[in-house]
Design a protein around this nucleic acid. Structure first.
Length: 605
DNA sequence: GTTAGGG
DNA sequence: CCCTAAC
């Protein structure tokens, strides 16, 4: 066991450069160099793009690997969280009972004793096809073993992580069965279950511990940011799982980068970006935001300045009083906590901080405008209509970076720690860009989430730490709490490439490959045994309702590969071995439902 | 929005 | 896992 001293740093005000150099022109982002007064407020959103793009692209490492949250508690309700805390983290089985989805999810926490008894597969013993009755614990333990093994042996696949769903007992039985029975009785399928795959009174449902789309449960669209920060207005930082040890850092580092390249944007949709070579990026100024060194303020490049000079846009310099000059010196980033070994290099520290900043200032934010402390909500108003004019130098114009969408999430999610941890003890990659929660630690930052930039009509915009008051009226961003992460979940964390799914469809990203665990296969098989092979939406609802990252198409695909796997010799199979018993059931179910399909077709003829 | 099937 | 035709 490696004991390494950690250096905890707290950055109250990381004032990072936000002005890209000339070569960092961003295509299609518009210009902010000069903003005529009659521009709509919306134009300020360009600012967010500027910051986001710079932060996104400025680091050569581009370390976008951030682990998804594997923590079920991340999404648990405050009630549930309290419950768990009251129980010292031990599992309360009654949490399952009629649990809300969040409760069910959060119940998938191991007992303090580290046992998984509470996570046992709750199977219907009456279902003959199920050979796993009473073996839930073993399965889960095997899962853990596999997880560990993968981490040790498959460094190169670390980004694929482990996404083992947990099987939960479904107490939706009453509802499910009634509806199910209604369906089956009124359909031709009703009797099928009495055949080789009798109906069961319980279903298995997977609860995804690491579902990085669990946030979908949140009504706040920007929850998908999976970013957290110390402040509620910011997207939630993904808690990361370090999966690599220091001694492997060097190699893994390059692997990481290679792997990054293996997850390109969709080529077809990427041409806009790639079509411009590095050499011509700097010259593509037409209609673009272009910040050159000449825009530096006070001799630094730490500012975004709106000057009266325009690039790619005609401005009537003679139209006096029509332009509002703004310059933003720098953005302040909310408080960050860095936990890094003493032996870490300065470069590593830099990267860690950089990644934190980049993560916080993801794409999924936009610029909010505050005028005299009041948020300007009407994007259609002109500056002059809003009261922003060159003449009025007393108005306090504030900019803030905030999530794109509003949230209805409970405020209990507000105060959350954001820890940056790096080092071998955490097995973080050398790039140390993963953000993770310190296990079991709460750290409440008083600082609010939003990054606010106060400005006056003329002169530099002074960066001001985001105060709570201006945010109080904002109902946004309540859903960014990270809570204590149980060890098991941390272990289950996987580093996955993290690229923001920006609103720009051009940047659609291939999903990370997430191999099905045996548990998931088991759940899939059982669901298909019951529902058949043509009702993937139902299968999804039945067994993978909480596994947001598993679409019914995924399940259909997985079944396809399972059938294929079952048909080939064990020597030809790859990946995590699926128990032969399961594969046998796959073949049996497949044969059965194929037969049923044929019968159906014959009937309809 | 789902399903099915090729890639 | 992606894409898309077909429904």
């Amino acid at each position: 066991m490696m004991l390494q001293k950690k250096v905890n740093c707290s950055f109250n005000a990381y004032k990072g450069p936000i002005i890209p150099k000339a070569s960092r022109s961003i295509r299609g982002r518009g210009t902010i160099r000069k903003k005529p007064e009659n521009n709509q407020i919306q134009a300020f959103e360009i600012l967010a793009n500027v910051a986001g793009n710079f932060l996104q692209e400025s680091e050569h490492s581009g370390l976008d690997y951030v682990a998804p949250s594997k923590d079920p508690q991340t999404f648990c309700s405050s009630n549930t969280k309290d419950k768990l805390e009251d129980e010292g983290g031990s599992f309360k089985e009654d949490l399952f009972e009629r649990g809300t989805s969040s409760e069910i999810v959060s119940a998938c926490v191991p007992t303090r004793q580290g046992k998984h008894d509470n996570l046992r597969v709750m199977d219907d013993a009456s279902f003959p096809g199920n050979h796993l009755e009473g073996q839930g614990q073993n399965i889960l333990e095997r899962e853990d073993e596999r997880v560990k093994r993968r981490r040790v042996n498959e460094k190169s696949t670390h980004i694929e992580g482990c996404f083992d769903g947990l099987i939960e007992p479904s107490y939706k039985v009453t509802k499910d069965c009634s509806s199910e029975n209604n369906v089956t009785k009124s359909s031709l399928e009703g009797h099928r279950h009495l055949d080789s795959f009798p109906n069961t009174s319980t279903v298995r449902k997977l609860v995804n511990r690491d579902d990085d789309e669990n946030l979908d449960n949140c009504t706040q669209p920007n929850c998908k940011d999976k970013i957290s920060s110390t402040s509620p207005g910011m997207p939630k930082l993904k808690d990361a799982s370090p999966l690599m040890s220091d001694e492997n850092n060097s190699r893994d580092n390059s692997e990481l980068e290679n792997l990054q390249r293996m997850y390109p944007f969709k080529k077809r949709k990427f041409f806009n970006q790639t079509s411009s070579s590095a050499s011509d990026r700097g010259s593509q100024c037409q209609g673009m935001f272009d910040v050159s060194d000449t825009t530096r303020v006070n001799g630094t490049n730490h500012a975004i300045e709106e000057s009266s000079s325009m690039v790619g846009q005609q401005v009537h310099s003679g139209s006096k009083g029509c332009n509002v000059k703004l310059s933003i010196k720098s953005f302040k980033v909310p408080e960050l906590f860095i936990n890094i070994p003493e032996t870490a290099t300065i470069g590593s520290l830099k990267r860690t901080v950089m990644e934190a900043v980049k993560t916080i200032l993801g794409d999924e934010l936009h610029v909010g405008i505050l005028l005299q402390g009041k948020k300007v909500r009407d994007d259609s108003k002109t500056l002059i209509q809003t009261g922003i004019s060159q003449d009025d130098k007393r108005h306090r114009l504030g900019f803030m970076l905030e999530p794109r969408q509003t949230s209805n999430c409970p405020s209990s999610y507000n105060d959350n720690p954001c820890f940056l941890t790096t080092g071998s003890q955490q097995k973080l990659s050398k790039q140390s860009t993963s953000l993770m929660l310190q296990q079991g630690t709460y750290n409440v930052s008083q600082e609010r989430s939003m990054i606010k930039i106060e400005s006056c009509a003329e002169g530099d915009l002074n960066v001001v730490s985001s105060p709570t008051d201006t945010y109080a009226n904002n109902n946004m961003s309540k859903c960014r709490t990270l809570v204590a992460v149980p060890t098991i979940n941390m272990e289950a964390l996987a580093v996955v490439p993290f690229r923001r799914k920006s609103g720009n469809p051009d940047f659609a990203q291939r999903r990370i490959r997430r191999p099905f665990s045996v548990l998931e296969v088991e759940a899939l098989v059982q669901a298909v045994e019951k529902l058949g092979t043509g009702r993937w939406r139902d299968v999804k609802q039945r067994a993978f309702d909480h596994a947001k990252h598993r679409t019914y198409v995924d399940l259909k695909d997985k079944w396809k590969t399972l059938v294929h796997t079952a048909r080939i010799s064990p020597q030809q199979r790859r990946g995590e071995p699926v128990p032969q018993e399961l594969l046998d059931r796959v073949l049996a179910a497949h044969a059965y439902w194929s037969q049923q399909q044929c019968k159906q077709q014959l009937k309809s003829l």
